[in-house]
Design a protein around this nucleic acid. Sequence first.
DNA 1: TAAAAAATAATAGTTTTACTATCTTTTGTA
DNA 2: TACAAAAGATAGTAAAACTATTATTTTTTA
Lengths: 262, 262
Amino acid sequence: MNNLVINIKVHESLYLKDPQTTDLGKRIIEHSVLMIDKIGLECFTFGKLSKVINAAEPSIYRYFENKHQLFVYLLNWYWEWMAARIELNTMNITSAAARLKIVLNVIADAAKKNSSIEFVDEEALHRIVVTEGAKGYHHKMVDADNKEGFFLACKRLCEKIADLLIEVNPNFPYPRSLASSLLETANSNLYFAKHLPRLTDVKNEGNMLTQRVKDLLEYFCFGILYAYDFGKDEQLNHQLIATKKVSYANAHSSDNAMEHTL
Amino acid sequence: MNNLVINIKVHESLYLKDPQTTDLGKRIIEHSVLMIDKIGLECFTFGKLSKVINAAEPSIYRYFENKHQLFVYLLNWYWEWMAARIELNTMNITSAAARLKIVLNVIADAAKKNSSIEFVDEEALHRIVVTEGAKGYHHKMVDADNKEGFFLACKRLCEKIADLLIEVNPNFPYPRSLASSLLETANSNLYFAKHLPRLTDVKNEGNMLTQRVKDLLEYFCFGILYAYDFGKDEQLNHQLIATKKVSYANAHSSDNAMEHTL
DNA sequence: TAAAAAATAATAGTTTTACTATCTTTTGTA
DNA sequence: TACAAAAGATAGTAAAACTATTATTTTTTA
């Protein structure tokens, strides 16, 4: 199941020459992913890459203007890949809520046995997105990059998820913010569990990390999706809160979700 | 109100020589903030800074090992400042929910008339945190930095908020994740509204941006806080969802929160 | 098939940044 | 006032980012 070959098309503003069309181009992509995963975006340079792939440094500049463009190319690859996985895994599901759960599963990266392209190590690429993804759009040149279409894949992905949120609850007022927040929260909690555990409740024990992140995403997502409007109908709110408190206490009285120790 | 002088103490692992103790040190902090805000972290260099403050470049290295250490120093300043503002604004409030609303207000940066330190432009520093804050901990050296105590202020801030979330709902299973998520969501939506508007529902129109972000934070925060446990008591869930849908439709039928057009 | 044209890659630089070794000046104190 | 210690300035080096130019290969066409 799901071993179809996915064809990833990256926007042409993100390269000078399409790396997928040549052998050298593919080696650039392949070893960029491996090297950035290994030594980090800061230490990664075109000079080091050229030595690893046995090419001249200026040859790399024929494909990408600079390190930043190459990095955003890789991010776009990841976003396109995620969108393709979502499409693939939800196409035959009718219930919107069920599709949303699958999307959360894909976001948390729990269902990724899908090595579609032979020269891209998707696990390494995912680690890069989790660790350094934010650098792709958190800088002073973001407006210029945006005009060039650097973030189209991300925006499409976000809107795809937002559409689904609206389908689950047509009255929900923050579909885009929740969609982007879910993408960020998944990555943050994976990262925090590994490096800054005091910033998350998800534990990096055993091999349950992605499952736990998925649980958290579901808890947050459906909690927000069905949230009522605070302050507008206080009486109903208090009524609801009281009901839910009882419901929650019953559900969690002997649950491991109570493990938190502050 | 709130014009008390706040004393910001930054952890000593974050400098070689305390910049607050000398005139040059204060000029380094002051103009780092102004320059990073203006040209961005990437373009900001010790060489350029030394020219602006009329000092020799190596003098700056007496205070900070490198640009990264200086940057994390500034982040810590911000986290300490935010913790101080939270303390100041919530000290006399008994209701936990009311205190939480104030905290969300502080996170969204809507209540910051508090120029405590004369040589730090807090508005510029806040823009830096929103635009580039994630770079402080998203890199390969994060574990080494963490051991040195670079993120203590952030972790304390996060736990302070987590404690409050637990106070509002003692059964809530994800206090730390929600706390960190609120901090990130506030910054993300401010940033997206200005640079990538398709990733948020918050509009950057007029001077209501921080207010709108605060509304979003409240909606998300209280929605999650009182979320019930999906899948454990399906009957009650469906009952609640139905009630809330009606509640929400009534509240928002003629509200601008319905503006979303996908 | 062979020469010209076009595309691609390699060589050898320049500029800027990050950082350091060393020297000079200032300041506090006995 | 003399001296030590701290602070600051001078003048570098090494590496990264990028580019102009030359060399090679491939493609096209006579």
